[in-house]
Design a protein around this nucleic acid. Sequence first.
DNA 1: ACCGCGCATTGATCAACGTCAATAATGAGC
DNA 2: GCTCATTATTGACGTTGATCAATGCGCGGT
Lengths: 218, 218
Amino acid sequence: MPVGLSEQEIERVDELVGTRRKVARGMPLYLSGEPFQSLFAIRTGFFKTEVVSEDGREQVTGFQMAGELMGLDGIGTGQHNCDARALEDSEVCVIPFNRLSELSREIDTLQHHFHKVMSREIVRDQSVMMLLGTMRAEERLAAFLVNLSQRFLSRGYSATEFNLRMTREEIGSYLGLKLETVSRGLSRLQDEGLLSVSNKNIRIHKLDELKKAMSPRC
Amino acid sequence: MPVGLSEQEIERVDELVGTRRKVARGMPLYLSGEPFQSLFAIRTGFFKTEVVSEDGREQVTGFQMAGELMGLDGIGTGQHNCDARALEDSEVCVIPFNRLSELSREIDTLQHHFHKVMSREIVRDQSVMMLLGTMRAEERLAAFLVNLSQRFLSRGYSATEFNLRMTREEIGSYLGLKLETVSRGLSRLQDEGLLSVSNKNIRIHKLDELKKAMSPRC
DNA sequence: ACCGCGCATTGATCAACGTCAATAATGAGC
DNA sequence: GCTCATTATTGACGTTGATCAATGCGCGGT
């Protein structure tokens, strides 16, 4: 994934991500408490990550799509700290962490790239904290959809028409809302003419207005 | 900070964290948008980190105390992504990130330690997401106090009597609550006999009950 | 030591979201 | 293609925490 490598270096990075693994819809890629050994890069498909607290609370902490990296949370403790579950039939590259560590000691571009990826994950988490801490239901929903839209776009898919892979309940868990509130919010955005919802299919009609809907008093 | 280094390695790590910097109460250690060059390890004092969104929303993303590392969010973009501000007169070690990168290529214990620290930051952020997404006001407050208590304890201070360095408003921002709600929550925990509050001074009388107050229906 | 402003507390009211419930629609599996 | 369980929508009502407001207190700065 990093750029600016020599041919030889590319070859070595290629070996690193040698093995692949398929995960059927609904199946876990890993579960909380399992020993951490590898990171996973998504080749195809869609995942959610979910943490479960001691007192049984569940919270979806993210939705991951092709090209994104999963498992970073396991490095600190040597155990995975969340469940990762496929939301559709998916395929990942397995990246043994030991070998990534070794190789990143030799290829500084790789090292720097890896550090950037971890740092960006921290920044992402912080923007979710801001969403959960300061936004109202409809603003959260708009931010969620705009974020998805941008990520689809950057992968070459349509920014304005896509299918949600997750349920209203999973969206709600991620956004700190109940599923009914998610449903009502989507209906409201539809009534306002910003988008059309048909179950999991979303068509965004006014992306610019949807972005405005992320801010208060609209 | 990592353990298991040879004497020579310890010496080199010591050089790495050579320079120090004092930050007076209320002053920024860094601001969002400034170029990222160094990480900072807190020697003494207390900080908050705060993100400001485009539409002007502010959210405290964490409170940091002695021994903790700040600045990890800047690696990904090359710019700091939050403000770090001293809540009391403080002193930090400056750790030039370039040199940390180089040295961690040579000393694998250091490399591994650094990766662990970043990963733990991700896990910490995720537990804040769970707090913001699933807990009620008084539960959040209890969780916040228990967390502070444990961190003071692990630094050799009392787990049951300490001074808050931050205002009710800053606590509220961190917990996704308004300052009035924080104040009411503290008063309520006091009425229930779990602790005494006198402005910024907190005395926890029933730490075990406070931990229970983190869970629903108490 | 004193002054003044920032910080904290507390009350009353209100809006947003959660809860409970009933129904409808969808699509996964046979 | 049919069936059933899962998922989604919508309504009525309740609760939590936000908002608005007024007062009191403490601490930092001089």
